[in-house]
């Protein structure tokens, strides 16, 4: 499903070049649950953004479902992000003036779905993350864990083939973190492909495969080939 070949990402800062990702080779199959670990500044988020089609590599190739992402126009990438990828962020990134329901609806709006269907699907998604009684709450009326669950509902709403979570438990206490991880495990069992960045070993242990990054290079890939059958 995901195939990174020879991937490089550099930032030019004056006459200095910063090698953030260096010759990355990575293959992730459908329905894998992968954790990416590594020290701060090692390039984990950069790698995630690349996989999420938010960022483009300096060189190398990224095939998503067999198509080269670099060759796609911006509009096409927006469509891919909308339909195939669900993002979960450490800081939740909910729009503060919108209710939980409307936040969850956003991807459907960009997907051109009619209002009635949007409401139905948003309600179902919120039910799935256990927030059916918080539909009309504003983000600042929700706890951190609840906010993250709204964000997960938003990531799920378009039934994406890939869920990307960058430190989803990073801003949560351990109890809420556990709830989120149980939710992810459930999604994994239902067939979702999950990639998750984390600093915590306990969190990483929910995943079947742990990729370790240091200084922009993959130095360890434990559990590779250990694909869970559907």
């Amino acid at each position: 499903m995901i195939h990174l070949k020879n991937l490089d990402k550099q930032y030019k800062n004056g006459d200095q070049t910063l090698h953030v990702l260096n010759d990355i080779h990575l293959k992730i199959e459908e329905n894998e649950f992968v954790a990416i670990m590594g020290p701060s500044g090692s390039g984990k988020s950069t790698l995630m953004n690349m996989i999420g089609c938010l960022d483009q590599p300096t060189s190398g190739e990224y095939l998503l479902h067999g198509t080269d992402v670099a060759s796609q126009p911006e509009k096409e990438l927006a469509k891919v992000r909308n339909a195939q990828i669900g993002f979960v962020f450490q800081q939740f990134h909910l729009l503060p003036k919108l209710s939980a329901m409307m936040n969850v609806e956003l991807p459907l709006i960009y997907g051109g779905i009619k209002k009635k269907e949007r409401k139905e699907r948003a309600r179902l998604a919120l039910e799935k993350v256990g927030l059916e009684d918080r539909v009309n709450h504003l983000p600042n009326q929700l706890s951190g864990g609840q906010k993250q669950r709204v964000a997960i509902a938003r990531a799920l709403i378009n039934e994406p083939s890939l869920i990307l979570a960058d430190e989803p438990t990073g801003a949560l206490d351990s109890k809420s973190g556990t709830q989120i991880m149980e939710l992810f495990t459930q999604l994994h069992h239902e067939g979702a492909t999950l990639i998750m960045v984390t600093h915590e070993q306990e969190v990483a242990d929910y995943a079947r495969r742990i990729v370790t990054v240091r200084d922009g290079e993959i130095i360890k890939d434990r559990g590779h080939e250990n694909v869970v059958p559907r």
């Binding site: 999420g52 911006e74 927006a78 993002f87 960009y110």
Partner: peptide, 16 residues
């Protein structure tokens, strides 16, 4: 700015 970034990550095009 963050709202715009988020909307783009959710599939908003430049045109949107």
């Amino acid at each position: 700015t963050r709202e715009i970034g988020l909307r783009k990550s959710l599939g908003a095009t430049r045109g949107n």
